[in-house]
Nucleic acid binder design. Sequence first.
RNA 1: GCCCCGGUGUCCCAAUCGGCAGAGGAAGCGGUCUUAAACACCGUCCAGGUGUGGGUUCGAGUCCCACCCGGGGCACCA
Length: 827
Amino acid sequence: MSEQDENREGYDVHATEAKWLPVWDELDPFRADDDSPREKRYALTMFPYPSGDLHMGHAEVTALHDVIARYWWQRGFEVLNPIGWDSFGLPAENAAIRRDEHPATYTYANIETQAASFRKYAVSFDWSRRLHTSDPEYYRWTQWLFLKLREEGLAYRKSSPVNWCPHDQTVLANEQVVDGHCERCGALVTKRELTQWYFKITDYAQELLDDLDVLEPTWPARVVSAQRNWIGRSEGAHVDFQVATDGGGSREVSVYTTRPDTLFGATFMVVAADAKLAAEIVSDQQRKTFEDYLEETRRASDVDRMATDRPKSGVFLGAYAVNPVNGVSVPVWASDYVLADYGTGAIMAVPGQDQRDWDFAREYDLPVIRTVQPPEDWEGEAFTGHGPAINSANDSVSLDGLEIDEAKRTIIDYLEKQGSGRGAVNYRLRDWLLSRQRFWGCPIPIVHCPVDGEVAVPEDQLPVVLPELKGADLKPKGVSPLAAAEDWVNVECPTCGGPAKRDSDTMDTFVDSSWYFLRYCSPHFEDGPFDPAAARAWMPADIYVGGVEHAVLHLLYARFFTKALRDLGLLEIGEPFAAQLNQGFVINHGKKMSKSLGNGVNLGDELSQFGVDAVRLTLVFAGPPEDDIDWADMSPAGSLRFLQRAWRLSGDVASAPGVSPESGDVALRRVTHRTVHEAAGLIESFRFNVMVARMMELVNATRKAIDSGPGAEDPAVREATEVVAILLSLVAPYTAEEMWSRLGHQPTVARVGWPVVDEALLVEDSVTAVVQVQGKLRARLEVSPDISEADLEAAALADESVQRTLEGKQVRKVIVRAPKLVNIVAG
RNA sequence: GCCCCGGUGUCCCAAUCGGCAGAGGAAGCGGUCUUAAACACCGUCCAGGUGUGGGUUCGAGUCCCACCCGGGGCACCA
């Protein structure tokens, strides 16, 4: 024992940890029983990726999450609090290449390390449900789900320009491209035309958007807002233009616009340079110019393309489009400021009302017609504000004078009658590209046969297991390493038996994590991805705790999967996570922890210095869970001091276990019962930091009762100390268990149940009423909590110092809020 | 540019419905213990008004408007 520990008067943190861990292992108090008659709760935390040991971030999220799970157990619920690992992914593959080994070696070693750390960290996980997405028993069902979605037309293959990360040598989903860079490695993302697998998440765009309204009260505002932005619904119209092409032909080209009311001001059309349409309608004369331009834009990175302040560029395609409302023939241009994969890949350009079109018109000297009247002093360029329509009439319809909304309705109505357009809704959301050209992922269970084409691997042949590749075999080559594994990739076609090849891509790891919370409900189920009865019992998760970085990735994908599985008849719910809590980051000295800054805080060091409980308490007490925690501002030593103070109470209690608290000191009992009452509300509204503060007050009050109050023999002191142990069991399980034991009870305190609040003790027998004059505090009165308004007013007016203040003034109005406040307006 | 969240003592942070501006912690200071120090324990100090300016109200940290600062999301999405 160190000198420091001796001074802690016998509370040896590490000995306490060593003492209780095996006891808990024996008791196994957190195993969720599917058949329990209790009401069920599902506490879900985002499963970790197995890179190295746990760090401060893991410590924070699990400390917060565990407060909720342990609280629910104490409240008498049957709680499902599972743990698993998101164990496919690039870091393991890169490590395997470096170390010349199989990715599984690195992965499973790290999982064991993290599992041991979680155990010591005393998280109330149900270890019997542990899963790893890289286990064939798990990914068999990922493959099965993929095939089901494919049967429904929700997984399909198409050739399209895709995001390509040259560093990781793989394609990326839109969601994984951040500011034109790879979300994972930061490399500049380029475009490639590739045939890839997609999930048709866009089929669910509207439902994903609508259900956010339902989630809004219980989900963090920033996640709801991020998803709304990402789905990006807009309302407008499709307008059909006839485009004259070379040789006198004509074809119809539809554009999407949110401003159909400005159609009379469309003075040219712009087609995305990289859209197929552009190449189809360009005239022979302009073809060379166009192709040169296309080549130039292809070379530009997305980052350059997305810079909004760069001058507009484009080429004339030698074709003309006829505006359906006025018969005017307008030139068709190609430009890179129009996106090929949004809307129809073509726009009607209205320079009078759109700044981008204005810029383009200026660059190439194209005409401008204003169709919304700008204010008189308007000196700007495109006018995007509100005003009456102008210059917008033909023989059968006129928008002139109408405000924008009315004008939109009128013109859409007209277009629909004419058959040259219709109201339309568009989304920014694109389909989810799920193929990856990497090894350490779930193989796509498809065989490509020269005769039968795409053939699904039959269900009884699942899982398609990864081959044993390691080291240099895994090096990125632009095609999946699986393609080079001859024995693996060459198979018989399941349909015709002829020679065929397996699909050699693997799935995005976000596919694995889009359904793991369902597998947790029945992790050993053999007849499907999950037992529908178990899913019915546990889902949706009542709380999902995790990082906000998944606001539009995992959380959107998981919602999509849930809805798709519901439509497949596998689930009865449409939303997987009823409520959500995002924790902030643990930072240090105002900055994110990083190796390059050298400001990392090592979790293991903190744990050995202060113990598990003090670290957990510090993280929970730091502030609101969503806020970042600056470790430099925190005091784990202070947390440890508090735990010792609490622990010491348990040694001072002098009454016997089981003594009735009825005869105990009423003042202390009031504090105890009020604390229990408030703690429940605070936990349920995620204000754990305040809950801890209340707990500290209770400890202080109990200390006072022992030292300078009714004394250690008073039953109220035992009651208070037992409550401290129970409340503490949510945050500091070791200290709580040790206290419980010293109070003469058997383990485990974690399951003894929430203290019953005596309502009578919540009612004060007198309260302090405040008397204000002109809003300023002038007197305090001790009054009965059920005093009448009239009595309180009379008492206030009778008060001496109030009288003095009111001298020479006339009372104009008296506001009484019995029993707490009187405000006298005088003058 | 549009949208979301926040700004309270030296620091981290409380203040359910608009009703006493501070709960809890940290740091500081004083004391007890000690030969001494550290640890521990006990006690204690701190706002001219809650980023700024207006407004509503008997009453605003809380509601409304504008702005400033910090953090985050979306963005050539027609």
